[in-house]
Lab assay of single mutants.
Amino acid sequence: MSIQHFRVALIPFFAAFCLPVFAHPETLVKVKDAEDQLGARVGYIELDLNSGKILESFRPEERFPMMSTFKVLLCGAVLSRVDAGQEQLGRRIHYSQNDLVEYSPVTEKHLTDGMTVRELCSAAITMSDNTAANLLLTTIGGPKELTAFLHNMGDHVTRLDRWEPELNEAIPNDERDTTMPAAMATTLRKLLTGELLTLASRQQLIDWMEADKVAGPLLRSALPAGWFIADKSGAGERGSRGIIAALGPDGKPSRIVVIYTTGSQATMDERNRQIAEIGASLIKHW
């Protein structure tokens, strides 16, 4: 067993022997301040990774656009098919120029040779490549099948209805392509620590998230040296922004954090800054 596999296998073990965790309302004060600064709703939840206990939450059962955070769930569904012998990570998928959609920095470079399922998941999570996500959605049967996968996990809230990039439209009061912070946090925890996926697939999923290259201005910008984070960000229309993450000190994750916002007129930089400040408060009061 590799060191990384050992780390993920012992996530519940280490967490069980940690000192009790206590909620700190100071972080919620910052979440509410972010709402004021952005002029928009902000949803927040913080779960203990081992027990699933909610440590703090704000608007945990209000719907927010998922945006690209759905790509972690998508690759979880792909990995479940791999575990069941219905898919192979090494299978190569070929596609054409007509398949390319807006923001496809990886797939646009491989029109000639195609990409493997493993490479597509890596591109979808680490670079948020939209064509990679659409190609992977095709392998599982489309958005409705991802929703069905989530329902089978016990998540009857999260739903995907459309493809990239239309799913980022974020129309107010439109339930399409949305989740709730509580539902997303619980589902992410199941994917990373539950028995739904094999140990190898859980490790692969967290490795992809740990290698995320496009979430630097968010929670990662607030992390002290030595902290662990595996995350996936999302951005959408109407001032929408979000991030889902597993993080913790001492090089291992111990909490799940989900943050979503929508309806702001603020710039992307300002949305990023507010999420980073929430992260800084979380870490300060850990």
Rank of each mutant, 00 (worst) to 15 (best):
V72H: 02
L192W: 08
T147M: 09
R220M: 01
E166T: 11
G141V: 04
H156N: 14
L188I: 15
V106C: 09
K190G: 15
I244G: 03
L111I: 14
V82F: 06
L247S: 03
L167D: 00
H156S: 13
M184N: 01
T187K: 04
S233F: 01
P253R: 09
E210W: 11
L100M: 14
D33Y: 10
N98W: 14
A148D: 13
M127R: 11
L191P: 01
R92C: 07
F149K: 07
I259G: 02
N134F: 01
E62Q: 09
L197M: 09
K71N: 00
G251R: 13
L89Y: 07
P25G: 08
R273F: 10
E35T: 03
V157N: 10
T198K: 12
E108P: 07
S51Y: 07
T198A: 12
G52Y: 06
G154S: 08
E210L: 09
A230T: 00
K213E: 08
G142R: 03
V214G: 05
G279I: 06
M268R: 07
R176P: 02
E62V: 08
I93Q: 05
P60Y: 08
G236C: 02
G251F: 09
S254C: 13
H94F: 11
I243A: 04
A148N: 14
L79G: 02
R220N: 03
A245M: 04
R220W: 02
T131Q: 00
L218K: 02
A225C: 11
K109H: 13
V214R: 06
L73C: 08
H110S: 10
I93K: 03
Q37D: 12
L197H: 06
K32P: 02
I278H: 03
E102S: 15
A170Q: 07
A34F: 08
L219V: 10
P60C: 07
D99M: 10
E164M: 03
E56W: 05
R59C: 07
S51A: 08
D48E: 11
L111T: 11
R159N: 08
S221W: 08
S57D: 08
K252Y: 11
G236H: 03
S264Q: 05
I171S: 15
S221R: 13
T186Q: 15
Y95K: 03
I259H: 01
Q265E: 14
L137E: 01
E169M: 13
K109C: 08
H151C: 10
V72D: 01
I229L: 07
T267M: 10
G239V: 02
T27G: 04
T187N: 11
P253L: 10
M268S: 08
G194E: 12
A245V: 04
T178I: 05
D250E: 14
L137C: 04
Y103H: 08
S240M: 04
E210F: 11
F70T: 06
A222C: 10
E277K: 11
R189Y: 13
S254R: 14
V72P: 13
E46P: 03
G216I: 07
V257G: 02
G76A: 13
K190L: 15
V29N: 14
R91V: 05
V157M: 11
P25M: 14
R176L: 08
A148V: 11
D113Y: 11
D231T: 05
A123V: 06
G263E: 09
K144V: 11
A170W: 10
V78H: 04
A84M: 13
G242Q: 02
K109W: 10
K232L: 00
V101F: 06
Q97V: 15
D174K: 03
D269E: 12
C121Q: 04
A215Q: 03
L192F: 13
G154R: 07
T126C: 09
V82Q: 07
I256M: 08
V258D: 03
S51L: 07
K284A: 13
S104L: 01
S254I: 10
D33H: 12
T262V: 12
K53F: 11
V106E: 15
I275P: 01
K190F: 12
A246V: 13
K30A: 15
P253Y: 10
L28W: 09
R92L: 13
V117D: 00
L120V: 05
R41P: 12
V157A: 11
T147G: 09
A123M: 01
S104D: 02
L191G: 01
Y44C: 01
D207L: 13
L223Y: 03
P25V: 15
L137Q: 05
I278S: 02
N152D: 14
V72C: 07
T158Q: 02
V214F: 04
K190A: 15
E26C: 10
L47C: 07
F64Y: 06
D113E: 13
D161C: 05
V42L: 11
E145T: 11
P181Y: 02
A170I: 09
I206R: 10
I259R: 00
E166P: 06
L282S: 06
T262R: 08
M127T: 14
V72I: 09
D174P: 01
H151P: 04
L197N: 05
A84T: 12
L218R: 02
T147V: 10
P172N: 10
S128I: 00
A280Q: 13
P60I: 14
E56C: 06
E61Y: 15
S51E: 11
A245G: 11
A77G: 08
S281D: 10
G39F: 09
V117F: 05
Q265F: 12
L135W: 01
M66N: 00
L219N: 01
S221P: 08
I206Q: 11
Q97Y: 12
D231H: 04
V257M: 06
L28P: 04
G248E: 05
P253I: 10
G242I: 03
F58R: 09
A230F: 02
A235C: 06
P181W: 02
I45R: 04
D113K: 13
E175H: 14
L219K: 03
T139Q: 15
L167S: 03
S122N: 14
M268G: 08
D250F: 13
S122C: 08
G242R: 03
K284E: 13
R271W: 05
T262G: 06
D161V: 06
T198E: 14
D212H: 04
T261K: 07
F149C: 06
H94V: 11
M66C: 06
L199M: 15
E175P: 14
P181C: 08
T262W: 09
V31K: 01
T139A: 14
P224F: 03
T178Y: 01
T261C: 13
T198Q: 11
D33E: 13
M180R: 11
V72M: 06
M66W: 00
A185D: 02
S104W: 01
A230D: 00
R81T: 07
T69R: 00
D83T: 06
R63M: 07
T107Q: 01
G248S: 03
I171H: 15
G154Q: 09
L150W: 06
L146C: 05
G43Y: 00
L73D: 01
V78P: 00
G52H: 07
L219S: 03
K32T: 11
N134A: 01
I45T: 09
L136E: 01
L219F: 09
P224W: 03
D155T: 03
V82Y: 07
F149Q: 08
T139W: 06
V257Q: 03
I206P: 01
E108R: 13
H94R: 12
P25W: 12
E62M: 09
E277V: 10
A182L: 15
D83M: 04
R118E: 14
L167W: 01
E119I: 00
A170F: 09
L100I: 13
T138G: 13
Y44F: 11
A132I: 01
S221L: 09
D99C: 05
V258Y: 04
V117H: 03
H94A: 10
S96N: 13
D48L: 04
D36T: 15
E102W: 08
S281V: 13
H151W: 13
I206G: 09
L28H: 08
P65M: 04
E145L: 10
A133L: 00
S96F: 12
L120S: 04
D33L: 11
E277C: 09
T198S: 14
S80Y: 14
K30I: 10
I93C: 04
K109T: 13
S122Y: 13
K71A: 00
F149R: 07
V157D: 10
W227T: 01
V31T: 05
V106G: 07
L47F: 07
D155F: 02
I93V: 13
K30Q: 11
S233R: 00
W286N: 03
M153N: 09
L219D: 01
L223K: 06
A84N: 14
E26P: 09
R273L: 11
K109E: 12
L136V: 08
G43P: 01
M184T: 01
N168R: 04
V29C: 14
G76M: 06
S80L: 14
T186M: 15
L79P: 01
I125N: 00
L137P: 02
